[in-house]
């Protein structure tokens, strides 16, 4: 599973801090992510993981600290960062009232793909996801699992170096989740770095490395195997619970 990872660091975070008035949501976190890695970014609700991720994707400015994404500084080069990353949010991130094809064309368009590239990509997607006839139906009429796969593919249209997935599999059954992770593996094998937040601890097991955030601080960061050894438990779920309990 680990053979797709290279030593090149594509995300480097140092002392990244975010303050909202008196409240510090992210308290000087530091970590790095390697190229081709599937990096799980875990934490309870309100632990600060969404805030941290927003700084990495350039839609929120850090209060202090540095973050380098795809070789660009998120603070000063956020335009470059945005061109090199893909993003799929926890809320389903396509337009329900547009057809599959129109969505692909639109998102391809805003990432500056040419008409020819969009055509080629659309054909590839139809082939890969076996979309067939549904390209002309509105996205709103598709089952959630389909939408999520589609949204993931759309976030990869411009062939980003890193793709950020914010709770990508919320609300679907385990089988569909498993299928979704197949897609993630395929993409990681191509050398794309995957940065994923999730609530599901079984998904944490699929990641190459996992960080767990508690109260704005990264409390643990290692491979799922090592983490389980470190906390002397059998599943990531227990790791998570143990960590949360210790803090309290």
């Amino acid at each position: 599973m680990v053979n797709h990872i290279s030593n090149e660091k594509v995300i480097e975070v140092e002392n990244l801090t975010k303050k909202f008035g008196d409240f510090t949501a992210v308290k000087g976190i530091s970590f790095h992510v390697n190229k081709g890695e599937i990096f799980g970014f875990l934490g309870a609700n309100g632990a600060g993981k969404t805030t941290a991720m927003k700084m990495l994707i350039g839609i929120s400015n850090p209060s202090s600290g540095n973050a380098n994404v795809a070789g660009f500084d998120v603070h000063t080069q956020s335009d470059e960062v945005k061109k090199s990353i893909g993003y799929m949010s926890q809320k389903f991130s396509m337009y329900d009232d547009l057809t599959v094809k129109e969505n692909i064309t639109f998102f391809g368009g805003i990432y500056g793909l040419s008409r020819k590239q969009i055509k080629k990509k659309t054909a590839e997607l139809i082939e890969e996801l076996q979309l067939g006839d549904i390209t002309k139906s509105r996205v709103g009429s598709l089952p959630l699992g389909w939408k999520q796969k589609l949204a993931f593919s759309v976030s990869l249209l411009h062939e980003p170096k890193i793709v950020f997935l914010d709770e990508p599999t919320g609300g679907v059954d385990p089988i569909t989740r498993r299928q979704f992770w197949e897609l993630i593996y395929t993409e990681a094998d191509k050398g794309t770095t995957i940065f994923v937040t999730t609530h599901y601890m079984d998904e944490a097991e699929y990641c190459d490395r996992v960080s767990i955030m508690v109260d704005g601080v990264i409390e643990a960061l290692d491979t799922p195997k090592n983490l389980k050894k470190q906390f002397d438990v059998d599943s990531m779920n227990e790791v998570f619970l143990k960590l949360a309990r210790n803090i309290e």
């Binding site: 994707i57 350039g58 839609i59 335009d79 945005k82 061109k83 990353i85 993003y87 799929m88 949010s89 926890q90 809320k91 389903f92 991130s93 396509m94 337009y95 329900d96 998102f107 805003i110 990432y111 500056g112 950020f164």
Partner: peptide, 12 residues
């Protein structure tokens, strides 16, 4: 819908 975030993350 959450699409605004997607737009803001894009190079637009």
């Amino acid at each position: 819908l959450g699409t605004m975030e997607v737009l803001l993350v894009s190079p637009l």
